[in-house]
Simulated scan of single mutants.
Amino acid sequence: MRTAERVRVREIDGNEGQRLLRIIRRGIGSVVTWRRAQVVLLSAQGMFVAKIAKVTFTSPDRSAT
């Protein structure tokens, strides 16, 4: 089985980062929205896909999409 390659989102500005933090901290929206916000924020902070998968309890392939 091949693991996902290094994937990163574009740089996010301060407003976008604050919005993602609000979603994560307050649980705004659905679980899917919360999970996506978490993955995007971690990727924007430079975390590798394998590490994101580990801390979000998901597969590397799901974290890289």
Rank of each mutant, 00 (worst) to 15 (best):
I24R: 04
L21C: 14
T33Q: 11
R25E: 15
R26S: 08
R22T: 01
L42E: 12
R36C: 11
N15V: 13
T33M: 06
V39R: 04
S30C: 04
I28L: 11
I12A: 01
Q18T: 08
V31I: 15
L20G: 05
I28N: 02
G27T: 10
I23K: 00
V31H: 14
G27S: 11
A37P: 07
G14L: 15
A44F: 00
A37Y: 00
R25L: 05
A37E: 01
V32M: 15
G27D: 08
Q18F: 14
S43M: 09
R36K: 11
I23T: 04
R36S: 09
I28S: 12
Q38G: 13
L21E: 13
Q18R: 15
A37L: 03
S43R: 03
W34E: 15
R36Q: 05
R22W: 12
I23V: 08
V40F: 01
L42K: 07
I23M: 11
G17N: 11
R35Q: 08
R26W: 13
A44V: 01
A44Y: 04
G29V: 00
L41E: 02
A44Q: 04
I24L: 08
I24T: 03
R26N: 11
S43P: 14
I24C: 10
A44I: 02
V31S: 13
L21W: 05
R25I: 00
S43T: 02
V39F: 04
L21Q: 10
G17L: 10
I24V: 13
G14M: 10
R35K: 07
G27P: 09
Q38K: 11
I12Q: 00
L20H: 03
A37G: 12
I28R: 03
D13H: 02
G29W: 03
T33L: 12
A37F: 06
T33D: 04
G17Q: 13
L42Q: 07
L20P: 10
V31P: 14
G14H: 14
E16H: 09
L41W: 06
R35I: 09
G27M: 07
L42W: 09
Q18D: 09
L20A: 03
E16R: 15
S30P: 04
Q38N: 09
S30G: 12
I23P: 00
D13V: 00
I12D: 02
G17W: 05
G27H: 06
N15Q: 15
T33C: 01
A37I: 12
R36V: 13
L20W: 06
V32A: 11
V39K: 08
N15S: 12
E16T: 04
Q38T: 14
R19C: 00
V31L: 11
E16M: 09
V40T: 15
S43V: 02
V31Q: 13
I28Q: 06
I24G: 08
A44E: 10
L21P: 07
S43G: 09
I12G: 01
D13Q: 04
A44L: 04
